[in-house]
Protein backbone atom coordinates (compact mmCIF):
# COMPACT_ATOMS: atom_id res chain seq x y z
CA UNK A 1 0.00 0.00 0.00
CA UNK A 2 2.99 2.32 -0.38
CA UNK A 3 1.87 3.68 -3.72
CA UNK A 4 -1.81 3.03 -4.26
CA UNK A 5 -2.56 3.25 -7.96
CA UNK A 6 -4.87 6.23 -8.40
CA UNK A 7 -8.07 6.06 -10.39
CA UNK A 8 -7.56 7.44 -13.89
CA UNK A 9 -8.80 11.01 -13.95
CA UNK A 10 -9.98 13.40 -16.66
CA UNK A 11 -7.51 16.29 -16.79
CA UNK A 12 -7.24 19.55 -18.69
CA UNK A 13 -3.87 21.11 -19.53
CA UNK A 14 -4.05 24.79 -20.51
CA UNK A 15 -0.83 26.31 -21.84
CA UNK A 16 -0.03 28.50 -24.86
CA UNK A 17 3.34 26.82 -25.27
CA UNK A 18 3.15 23.73 -27.49
CA UNK A 19 6.18 21.97 -25.95
CA UNK A 20 4.76 22.46 -22.45
CA UNK A 21 1.36 21.14 -23.54
CA UNK A 22 2.90 18.09 -25.18
CA UNK A 23 5.29 17.26 -22.31
CA UNK A 24 2.68 17.76 -19.58
CA UNK A 25 -0.16 15.93 -21.27
CA UNK A 26 2.11 13.06 -22.28
CA UNK A 27 3.53 12.68 -18.75
CA UNK A 28 0.03 12.59 -17.34
CA UNK A 29 -1.11 10.07 -19.94
CA UNK A 30 1.84 7.86 -19.05
CA UNK A 31 0.60 8.09 -15.45
CA UNK A 32 -2.73 6.69 -16.59
CA UNK A 33 -4.90 9.80 -16.92
CA UNK A 34 -7.08 10.96 -19.78
CA UNK A 35 -5.87 14.40 -20.88
CA UNK A 36 -7.27 17.20 -23.02
CA UNK A 37 -5.44 20.41 -23.88
CA UNK A 38 -6.25 24.03 -24.67
CA UNK A 39 -3.98 26.68 -26.20
CA UNK A 40 -5.19 29.78 -24.40
CA UNK A 41 -7.24 30.90 -21.42
CA UNK A 42 -10.54 31.36 -23.20
CA UNK A 43 -10.41 28.00 -24.95
CA UNK A 44 -9.41 26.43 -21.64
CA UNK A 45 -12.35 27.96 -19.78
CA UNK A 46 -14.79 26.86 -22.49
CA UNK A 47 -13.50 23.29 -22.39
CA UNK A 48 -13.49 23.28 -18.59
CA UNK A 49 -17.13 24.37 -18.56
CA UNK A 50 -18.34 21.87 -21.11
CA UNK A 51 -16.47 18.75 -19.99
CA UNK A 52 -16.55 16.88 -16.73
CA UNK A 53 -12.93 17.40 -15.60
CA UNK A 54 -11.38 16.31 -12.32
CA UNK A 55 -8.51 18.78 -12.38
CA UNK A 56 -6.96 21.56 -14.46
CA UNK A 57 -3.28 22.45 -14.90
CA UNK A 58 -3.27 26.15 -15.74
CA UNK A 59 -0.46 28.32 -17.11
CA UNK A 60 -0.38 31.90 -15.83
CA UNK A 61 1.03 33.88 -18.73
CA UNK A 62 -1.16 33.31 -21.79
CA UNK A 63 -2.69 35.37 -24.57
CA UNK A 64 -6.46 36.00 -25.00
CA UNK A 65 -7.23 35.27 -21.35
CA UNK A 66 -4.48 34.75 -18.79
CA UNK A 67 -4.34 32.22 -15.97
CA UNK A 68 -5.56 34.74 -13.37
CA UNK A 69 -8.68 35.53 -15.32
CA UNK A 70 -9.45 31.85 -15.90
CA UNK A 71 -8.88 31.07 -12.22
CA UNK A 72 -11.18 33.89 -11.10
CA UNK A 73 -13.91 32.84 -13.54
CA UNK A 74 -13.74 29.27 -12.22
CA UNK A 75 -13.81 30.30 -8.57
CA UNK A 76 -16.91 32.42 -9.22
CA UNK A 77 -18.70 29.50 -10.85
CA UNK A 78 -20.64 27.32 -8.41
CA UNK A 79 -20.17 24.25 -10.61
CA UNK A 80 -16.47 24.75 -11.30
CA UNK A 81 -15.06 26.01 -8.05
CA UNK A 82 -14.84 22.60 -6.45
CA UNK A 83 -12.57 21.29 -9.22
CA UNK A 84 -8.91 21.68 -8.24
CA UNK A 85 -6.69 23.95 -10.31
CA UNK A 86 -2.90 23.62 -10.22
CA UNK A 87 -1.05 26.66 -11.53
CA UNK A 88 2.03 26.09 -13.69
CA UNK A 89 4.53 28.91 -13.95
CA UNK A 90 8.14 29.84 -14.48
CA UNK A 91 10.38 30.25 -11.42
CA UNK A 92 10.42 34.03 -11.94
CA UNK A 93 6.64 34.23 -11.60
CA UNK A 94 6.48 33.12 -7.95
CA UNK A 95 4.78 36.37 -6.88
CA UNK A 96 1.98 35.64 -9.33
CA UNK A 97 1.73 32.05 -8.09
CA UNK A 98 1.35 33.19 -4.49
CA UNK A 99 -1.49 35.46 -5.58
CA UNK A 100 -3.19 32.51 -7.33
CA UNK A 101 -2.91 30.25 -4.31
CA UNK A 102 -4.31 33.03 -2.11
CA UNK A 103 -7.20 33.40 -4.54
CA UNK A 104 -8.03 29.71 -4.27
CA UNK A 105 -5.80 27.68 -6.58
CA UNK A 106 -5.22 24.23 -5.12
CA UNK A 107 -1.46 24.11 -5.67
CA UNK A 108 1.31 25.11 -8.09
CA UNK A 109 4.19 23.64 -10.07
CA UNK A 110 7.19 25.48 -11.47
CA UNK A 111 8.33 24.83 -15.03
CA UNK A 112 10.10 22.81 -16.23
CA UNK A 113 7.81 20.48 -14.34
CA UNK A 114 9.51 17.69 -12.47
CA UNK A 115 7.58 14.47 -13.28
CA UNK A 116 7.78 13.16 -9.70
CA UNK A 117 6.38 16.39 -8.29
CA UNK A 118 3.77 16.41 -11.04
CA UNK A 119 2.55 12.97 -10.05
CA UNK A 120 2.57 13.78 -6.33
CA UNK A 121 0.70 17.10 -6.62
CA UNK A 122 -1.87 15.83 -9.11
CA UNK A 123 -2.61 12.74 -7.02
CA UNK A 124 -2.82 14.73 -3.78
CA UNK A 125 -5.21 17.22 -5.37
CA UNK A 126 -7.36 14.44 -6.82
CA UNK A 127 -7.51 12.74 -3.42
CA UNK A 128 -8.55 15.99 -1.72
CA UNK A 129 -11.21 16.48 -4.37
CA UNK A 130 -12.50 12.97 -3.80
CA UNK A 131 -12.87 13.62 -0.06
CA UNK A 132 -14.58 16.96 -0.67
CA UNK A 133 -16.96 15.32 -3.16
CA UNK A 134 -17.95 12.80 -0.50
CA UNK A 135 -18.51 15.57 2.03
CA UNK A 136 -20.55 17.51 -0.48
CA UNK A 137 -22.72 14.47 -1.21
CA UNK A 138 -23.36 14.10 2.50
CA UNK A 139 -24.21 17.78 2.90
CA UNK A 140 -26.56 17.74 -0.04
CA UNK A 141 -28.75 15.20 1.67
CA UNK A 142 -29.31 17.81 4.38
CA UNK A 143 -29.29 21.09 2.51
CA UNK A 144 -29.62 22.82 -0.83
CA UNK A 145 -26.68 23.05 -3.18
CA UNK A 146 -26.14 26.72 -2.24
CA UNK A 147 -26.11 26.02 1.49
CA UNK A 148 -23.88 22.97 1.04
CA UNK A 149 -21.39 25.05 -0.98
CA UNK A 150 -21.45 27.81 1.64
CA UNK A 151 -20.74 25.30 4.40
CA UNK A 152 -17.87 23.81 2.42
CA UNK A 153 -16.48 27.25 1.61
CA UNK A 154 -16.58 28.59 5.16
CA UNK A 155 -15.25 25.34 6.53
CA UNK A 156 -15.99 23.63 9.78
CA UNK A 157 -14.60 26.16 12.21
CA UNK A 158 -16.29 25.59 15.52
CA UNK A 159 -17.72 28.73 16.98
CA UNK A 160 -20.95 30.60 16.80
CA UNK A 161 -22.31 33.59 15.02
CA UNK A 162 -25.32 35.74 15.94
CA UNK A 163 -27.81 35.47 13.09
CA UNK A 164 -31.40 36.50 12.40
CA UNK A 165 -33.26 33.50 11.08
CA UNK A 166 -36.39 31.36 11.36
CA UNK A 167 -36.60 28.02 13.09
CA UNK A 168 -39.08 25.33 12.18
CA UNK A 169 -39.81 22.44 14.55
CA UNK A 170 -41.99 19.55 13.35
CA UNK A 171 -43.08 16.52 15.28
CA UNK A 172 -45.32 13.53 14.58
CA UNK A 173 -48.35 13.23 16.88
CA UNK A 174 -48.22 10.14 19.10
CA UNK A 175 -45.56 8.40 17.06
CA UNK A 176 -44.70 6.17 20.02
CA UNK A 177 -48.23 4.72 19.90
CA UNK A 178 -47.92 4.19 16.14
CA UNK A 179 -44.53 2.53 16.58
CA UNK A 180 -45.81 0.18 19.27
CA UNK A 181 -48.75 -0.92 17.19
CA UNK A 182 -46.79 -2.09 14.16
CA UNK A 183 -43.72 -3.97 13.02
CA UNK A 184 -40.42 -2.07 13.71
CA UNK A 185 -39.41 -2.26 10.05
CA UNK A 186 -42.75 -0.69 9.08
CA UNK A 187 -42.09 2.14 11.53
CA UNK A 188 -38.67 2.85 10.03
CA UNK A 189 -40.13 2.69 6.54
CA UNK A 190 -42.85 5.14 7.59
CA UNK A 191 -40.28 7.50 9.13
CA UNK A 192 -38.08 7.37 6.05
CA UNK A 193 -40.97 8.25 3.77
CA UNK A 194 -42.04 11.01 6.13
CA UNK A 195 -38.55 12.54 6.40
CA UNK A 196 -37.97 12.45 2.67
CA UNK A 197 -41.15 14.56 2.21
CA UNK A 198 -40.14 16.95 4.98
CA UNK A 199 -36.57 17.31 3.67
CA UNK A 200 -37.85 18.21 0.22
CA UNK A 201 -40.12 20.89 1.66
CA UNK A 202 -37.24 22.37 3.68
CA UNK A 203 -34.55 22.33 1.01
CA UNK A 204 -36.86 23.49 -1.78
CA UNK A 205 -37.45 26.64 0.27
CA UNK A 206 -33.77 27.22 1.01
CA UNK A 207 -33.72 25.82 4.53
CA UNK A 208 -31.33 23.40 6.13
CA UNK A 209 -32.15 20.43 8.35
CA UNK A 210 -30.27 20.86 11.60
CA UNK A 211 -31.40 18.04 13.76
CA UNK A 212 -33.43 14.90 13.65
CA UNK A 213 -34.28 13.38 16.98
CA UNK A 214 -36.56 10.36 16.77
CA UNK A 215 -39.56 11.54 14.78
CA UNK A 216 -38.85 15.24 15.30
CA UNK A 217 -36.89 17.59 13.12
CA UNK A 218 -35.48 21.08 13.43
CA UNK A 219 -34.84 23.17 10.33
CA UNK A 220 -33.44 26.66 9.99
CA UNK A 221 -34.08 29.27 7.29
CA UNK A 222 -31.78 32.24 6.77
CA UNK A 223 -28.56 30.73 8.12
CA UNK A 224 -25.78 30.05 7.22
CA UNK A 225 -26.91 31.97 4.14
CA UNK A 226 -29.07 34.97 5.01
CA UNK A 227 -32.37 35.37 3.17
CA UNK A 228 -34.37 38.58 3.63
CA UNK A 229 -37.59 36.53 3.41
CA UNK A 230 -36.52 33.76 5.83
CA UNK A 231 -39.85 33.99 7.71
CA UNK A 232 -41.97 33.51 4.60
CA UNK A 233 -39.70 30.67 3.43
CA UNK A 234 -40.21 28.83 6.71
CA UNK A 235 -44.00 29.21 6.56
CA UNK A 236 -44.06 28.17 2.88
CA UNK A 237 -42.08 25.05 3.76
CA UNK A 238 -44.51 24.25 6.59
CA UNK A 239 -47.55 24.63 4.31
CA UNK A 240 -45.84 22.43 1.72
CA UNK A 241 -45.22 19.82 4.42
CA UNK A 242 -48.88 19.81 5.41
CA UNK A 243 -50.02 19.62 1.77
CA UNK A 244 -47.76 16.69 1.00
CA UNK A 245 -48.74 14.94 4.18
CA UNK A 246 -52.40 15.19 3.16
CA UNK A 247 -51.64 13.41 -0.14
CA UNK A 248 -49.47 10.87 1.68
CA UNK A 249 -52.19 10.10 4.21
CA UNK A 250 -54.80 9.54 1.50
CA UNK A 251 -52.49 6.95 -0.07
CA UNK A 252 -51.77 5.35 3.29
CA UNK A 253 -55.45 5.05 4.17
CA UNK A 254 -56.24 3.63 0.72
CA UNK A 255 -53.72 0.86 1.46
CA UNK A 256 -55.05 0.38 4.97
CA UNK A 257 -51.89 1.82 6.46
CA UNK A 258 -51.34 4.31 9.25
CA UNK A 259 -51.97 7.99 8.61
CA UNK A 260 -49.78 10.50 10.44
CA UNK A 261 -50.54 13.88 11.89
CA UNK A 262 -47.91 16.46 12.69
CA UNK A 263 -47.50 19.69 14.60
CA UNK A 264 -45.27 22.52 13.37
CA UNK A 265 -43.98 25.51 15.32
CA UNK A 266 -42.11 28.39 13.71
CA UNK A 267 -40.33 31.27 15.46
CA UNK A 268 -38.02 33.94 14.14
CA UNK A 269 -35.42 36.21 15.62
CA UNK A 270 -31.83 36.35 16.72
CA UNK A 271 -30.05 33.14 17.58
CA UNK A 272 -26.56 31.78 17.84
CA UNK A 273 -25.75 29.50 14.91
CA UNK A 274 -22.62 27.54 14.30
CA UNK A 275 -20.89 24.22 14.56
CA UNK A 276 -21.03 22.56 17.93
CA UNK A 277 -19.25 19.43 18.95
CA UNK A 278 -15.63 18.46 18.57
CA UNK A 279 -13.42 18.45 15.52
CA UNK A 280 -14.24 14.77 15.08
CA UNK A 281 -17.97 15.10 15.21
CA UNK A 282 -19.78 18.38 14.83
CA UNK A 283 -23.20 19.54 13.67
CA UNK A 284 -24.46 22.87 12.47
CA UNK A 285 -27.01 24.01 14.98
CA UNK A 286 -28.90 26.95 16.43
CA UNK A 287 -29.20 27.85 20.09
CA UNK A 288 -31.20 30.46 21.96
CA UNK A 289 -34.62 31.56 23.17
CA UNK A 290 -35.98 31.68 19.64
CA UNK A 291 -35.18 28.00 19.22
CA UNK A 292 -36.63 27.00 22.62
CA UNK A 293 -39.79 28.91 21.86
CA UNK A 294 -40.24 27.04 18.57
CA UNK A 295 -40.31 23.82 20.60
CA UNK A 296 -42.90 25.19 23.01
CA UNK A 297 -45.10 26.55 20.24
CA UNK A 298 -44.92 23.22 18.41
CA UNK A 299 -46.03 21.47 21.65
CA UNK A 300 -48.90 23.92 21.89
CA UNK A 301 -50.34 22.73 18.53
CA UNK A 302 -51.83 19.77 20.43
CA UNK A 303 -53.78 22.06 22.73
CA UNK A 304 -54.67 24.61 20.07
CA UNK A 305 -55.78 21.87 17.68
CA UNK A 306 -54.06 23.67 14.83
CA UNK A 307 -51.21 22.04 12.90
CA UNK A 308 -49.17 25.20 12.23
CA UNK A 309 -48.42 27.89 14.79
CA UNK A 310 -46.05 30.86 14.53
CA UNK A 311 -44.86 33.71 16.74
CA UNK A 312 -45.53 37.44 16.27
CA UNK A 313 -42.21 38.25 14.59
CA UNK A 314 -42.71 35.49 12.01
CA UNK A 315 -46.24 36.78 11.36
CA UNK A 316 -44.85 40.28 10.66
CA UNK A 317 -42.72 38.81 7.89
CA UNK A 318 -45.66 37.34 5.99
CA UNK A 319 -47.31 38.91 2.96
CA UNK A 320 -51.02 39.70 3.19
CA UNK A 321 -52.08 36.64 1.17
CA UNK A 322 -51.31 34.41 4.16
CA UNK A 323 -54.36 34.04 6.37
CA UNK A 324 -53.55 33.93 10.05
CA UNK A 325 -55.66 33.73 13.17
CA UNK A 326 -54.58 35.48 16.36
CA UNK A 327 -54.76 32.94 19.20
CA UNK A 328 -53.89 35.54 21.80
CA UNK A 329 -51.11 35.68 24.36
CA UNK A 330 -49.97 32.38 25.80
CA UNK A 331 -47.74 31.91 28.85
CA UNK A 332 -45.32 29.04 28.21
CA UNK A 333 -43.53 27.08 30.91
CA UNK A 334 -40.18 28.60 31.71
CA UNK A 335 -40.98 31.94 30.09
CA UNK A 336 -41.84 35.01 32.15
CA UNK A 337 -43.51 36.88 29.32
CA UNK A 338 -46.65 35.90 27.48
CA UNK A 339 -46.11 35.19 23.79
CA UNK A 340 -48.54 36.13 21.06
CA UNK A 341 -49.27 33.01 19.00
CA UNK A 342 -50.83 32.86 15.53
CA UNK A 343 -52.26 29.93 13.61
CA UNK A 344 -51.58 29.89 9.87
CA UNK A 345 -54.63 28.81 7.87
CA UNK A 346 -54.60 26.56 4.85
CA UNK A 347 -52.32 23.67 4.30
Amino acid sequence: MLNPIPEPAHLLVVDDNKVNRMALSRSLEVQGHVVETAENGREGLEKFRSGAFDLMLLDIEMPVMNGFEVLEACLNDLDLRQIPIIMTSAMEELDAVVKCVELGAEDYLTKPVNPILLRARVNASLEKKRLRDEQRKLFRTFATKEVAEELLRTGFSLGGQLVTASVLVADIRSFTTIAESQDPSDSIELLNQYFSMMFDAVTQNGGIINQIVGDGLLAVFGAPIFYEDHRERAVKAALQMLDQLKVFNEKQLAQNKTAIRIGIGITSGKMVAGYTGTHNRAIYTCIGDTVNLADRIEEYTKEALRPLLIDAYTREGLASQYKVEDLGKIIFKGKNQAVNVFAVMGG
Binding site: V19, M22, A23, R26, S27, V30, P112, N114, P115, L118
Partner: peptide, 14 residues
Protein backbone atom coordinates in the same frame (compact mmCIF):
# COMPACT_ATOMS: atom_id res chain seq x y z
CA UNK B 1 14.06 12.47 -16.82
CA UNK B 2 11.99 14.14 -19.54
CA UNK B 3 12.52 11.18 -21.83
CA UNK B 4 11.48 8.66 -19.19
CA UNK B 5 8.43 10.56 -18.01
CA UNK B 6 7.03 11.10 -21.50
CA UNK B 7 8.05 7.71 -22.89
CA UNK B 8 11.09 6.98 -25.07
CA UNK B 9 9.03 6.71 -28.26
CA UNK B 10 7.63 10.20 -27.74
CA UNK B 11 10.88 12.14 -27.27
CA UNK B 12 11.57 12.50 -31.00
CA UNK B 13 8.19 14.17 -31.52
CA UNK B 14 8.86 16.47 -28.58
Amino acid sequence: TLKESTGADFISEL
